[in-house]
Amino acid sequence: MSIHAPEANWFKPPSGAERTWIGLALAWCLVLSIMMPYWHFKGKQNSTGDSYRVTPAAFAARVEQFVKTNKVAEINGVPVVEPSPGGDAYLQGQMWRWYPALKLRVNQTYRLHISSTDLQHGFSLQPMNMNFQVLPGYDHVLTITPTMKGEYSIVCNEFCGIGHHLMTGKIIVE
């Protein structure tokens, strides 16, 4: 009984169906654990946590400079900025907007720096549905390659105060 003390010498190796199941489960667990390193080397989607320490002020200044030099248009009063293919792009999360809007070329790779100047935010690209955490003080660098053309929205999926659900942004891929 599981509520009474077991017999004095209860240790015995598993047997029968129980033993088979443990073997099967262990094999499945090994498959699970091999999948991650496998994808790390062979897969195209990885979150490696590439990041650098940065002050919010320094990051905001760099974003401003990026907007000034690379702005190509404006939508809804938000500057649309086009980084050079293969280069660095900057995105600032703040209460409550993603700044600026980005214009990227399909199948080009960018180093997308994301950080926050106030609270924690959640970068959530829709309807592609890719999600990354954004922290103040951390320059989170995603080496990203858009593989499909289209207009994508960024929503915030980390609670950041009362206007959280209004925090949106845009990425256009051409």
């Binding site: 489960a25 897969g43 592609m128 390659t145």
Partner: peptide
């Protein structure tokens, strides 16, 4: 349980393979 586990798990890898490349 094991079969449903495997189906859901690999369906998710398939969905992941379809999004943008990122590192």
């Amino acid at each position: 349980l094991l079969i449903s586990f495997a189906v859901y798990y690999f369906a998710n890898w398939k969905a992941l393979a379809d999004v943008w490349h990122v590192r």
